[in-house]
Computed example of a mutant assay.
Amino acid sequence: MYLVVGLGNPGDKYDKTRHNVGFDVIDLCKDKYNFGPSRTKFKGIYWETIINGEKVLFLKPQTFMNLSGESVREICDFYKIPNDKIIVVYDDISLEPGTLRIRRKGSAGGHNGIKNIIMHLSTDVFPRIKVGVGQPKEDLIPFVLGRFSKEERALVENVFKASIEAIEVIVKEGVSEAMNKFNGFKAE
């Protein structure tokens, strides 16, 4: 069993912001895989589906970004999901819009949602898909809570599609194969 966690903040106020790209990817997965009804539990909303014969849970924590680890820890404890089968999708300011990067482990890199997940899992070893949102030209918080320009949004939506493909590759073939196929991806 896999768990795919899309990071974001709950509420319409944060919809389609840079910080909510993880939620956007989960929403597109819902359409692609025709998820059944949602469940509200583990401080989040989640769905389940089957990919390549493997049960996969998709989680949108409802704790707000900085406490995402609480939701992840609860669902992992309940379903006994090992860390190497937790895939976290989130925004990365060190990557340009239209790019993505996959890692099997690593530091939080200043991302408070990832920092909280690392704290709650007691490890930084879990696969992650980083969606580039660009460097702030102003203060960080208004930037990540802001929305993309029309041009950037078009690029990022192509990254969302690549992210969904990367999730499938991770489930079917492993993280290394997904890194080989998608690291260096640049939307046009």
Rank of each mutant, 00 (worst) to 15 (best):
R147K: 15
N9P: 04
N52D: 12
I102W: 10
I50V: 15
V25Q: 06
L67S: 10
K130F: 08
L7R: 09
E177G: 00
G106I: 07
L140S: 08
R73T: 04
V88P: 02
K172E: 15
R73Y: 06
K137Y: 14
M119F: 12
F160G: 02
G146W: 04
G146N: 07
V171I: 15
H120E: 15
L59W: 06
E165G: 05
Q62M: 14
K172W: 03
E157Y: 06
I50N: 14
R104T: 08
I51N: 01
L3V: 06
N52G: 11
N183V: 07
V175I: 15
C29W: 08
Y90G: 07
V25W: 05
G106S: 12
V56S: 04
D77E: 14
F160E: 10
K137A: 11
V89W: 05
Y33A: 01
L121R: 07
K161S: 08
M179R: 01
N83S: 13
V159Q: 13
E165Y: 06
G106F: 06
E157M: 01
N83D: 11
Y14R: 03
T99E: 15
S176P: 11
P10V: 06
L100V: 00
I129R: 11
R103M: 00
N83A: 08
D77G: 10
R153N: 14
I170Q: 05
D24K: 12
G132H: 05
E188A: 07
M119A: 14
L95G: 07
F64R: 14
Y2W: 14
S122H: 12
E151Y: 08
W47K: 04
V25I: 06
E54V: 02
I86C: 03
N180P: 10
V156K: 04
G98V: 00
K161L: 12
P37Y: 07
I102P: 06
R73N: 11
T40D: 13
I141C: 11
S38L: 04
D124K: 09
V175R: 15
H111E: 02
K186S: 08
S163Y: 08
E188R: 13
I87T: 05
V171Q: 07
E173K: 15
D27M: 08
D24N: 13
K172I: 12
P142F: 01
F126E: 13
L7I: 04
V175N: 12
T63A: 02
G6Y: 05
F182P: 04
P82N: 08
A166P: 03
Q135L: 11
F58E: 12
R128H: 01
S38P: 07
D15G: 08
G174W: 09
F42E: 03
F64S: 09
N20S: 11
